[in-house]
Design a protein around this nucleic acid. Structure first.
Lengths: 190, 190
DNA sequence: CAGCTCCAATAAAGTAGTTTAAGAAAGGGG
DNA sequence: CCCCTTTCTTAAACTACTTTATTGGAGCTG
């Protein structure tokens, strides 16, 4: 819990009362490796902040193929935004790749929290705008860079993720086959 | 769906109208190997009937050790009963050990179904009373039999389960270590 | 031809199962 | 009260199996 409050203070300043209001509107929860925070078809009821662990968000297409949309690590937010804001069935699955500890804010608490601690609006605005900017950057990169360049950039930007998830998932994230990723990795060594 | 209606007819006789009322209050769902039907901390929203596949229900203690409460196979019911009746967070995890097809009755439908098809009350009474009797039997056995006897009884009663789940899970169900189970199995051969 | 996919073979790493040996806890017999 | 047996655990080492990663070749496409 305190981890989360500390993290918030990087973005906004909270009085003691505000901090305790925040605390009373959030819940801590532990997931096991392999468990799902959100399953496609369910409604995404929480915005989820990762305290420790790692997640993958993926889409399962009609042929049964998984496409990794994004990973999530310590201090990141996770959730199917579309499902959360409309409280409609989620398209994405969010699965824990390690035992994962999270803080969650429920849909039915979040408006209440905004009302009582308006600074939280500011906080979420900042978070969401940076998430938005990142997806845009990613789309551009997918058009303008080849797989090798995308992989190396990924390694630079998220060395923690590269260490911790299987390569076939990174391949899926980059939009290539695991075999081709293996080739790319090999080229770089020599 | 029909599989389930057929199964019901073993316990109660349904008219066509009643059968279609039942059908309209239940849902079929497929889980992949490894997926969870119920995760500890979630509210158990369904009573789940296994059409095909196999599940384990386990409890995770504070030291991170798993304790298998029960397995579930074809034509069995599954669910965290306490969580379901109180709609409170579940203590147990229910995980599919194979791809598993189920029929589910939602909490918000079940009372409605009882109202419209009172025979279903009878059906659930029978199911639950036999589940209850089984847990009692199990408790008694844990006090009165040693691990070897418990294992052999388990093999006799549930040969289908023994074939299909890893041994370390059977050991956990019996309340012993996998090493000791391995010894027991070995003794029996000679 | 660069940039990739798909398929098949093989290697490496991780998970499950077995074996053995040492030892703790509980109960019974002398 | 001590010794012995039964019942089970812990730890370590080793085998078997499954999943993940690598490699190579053939093939498609702009």
């Amino acid at each position: 819990m305190q981890v989360f409050i500390d993290y918030l203070q990087n973005y906004i300043e909270l009085t003691k009362e505000e901090a305790s209001l925040v605390s009373s509107n959030i819940k801590s929860r532990n997931y096991l490796k392999g468990q799902y925070i959100v399953q496609a078809g369910d409604v995404c009821r929480y915005q989820t902040f990762i305290v420790s662990g790692i997640t993958r968000t993926f889409y399962l297409d009609d042929n049964g193929n998984e496409h990794i949309i994004t990973f999530g690590i310590e201090n990141w937010w996770n959730g199917d935004m579309m499902s959360f804001i409309n409280q409609s069935p989620a398209d994405f699955n969010i699965q824990c790749l390690e035992n994962t500890q999270v803080i969650q804010i429920a849909y039915h608490n979040i408006e209440n929290l905004f009302l009582k601690v308006p600074k939280m609006e500011r906080f979420f605005r900042i978070i969401i705008q940076s998430a938005y900017a990142n997806t845009q950057k990613r789309i551009i990169r997918n058009y303008s860079m080849n797989a090798k360049e995308r992989y190396h950039l990924f390694c630079e930007e998220y060395p923690q993720i590269v260490q911790r998830v299987p390569q076939y998932m990174i391949a899926s994230y980059l939009g290539i086959t695991k075999e081709f990723l293996s080739q790319i990795r090999n080229q770089s060594k020599s």
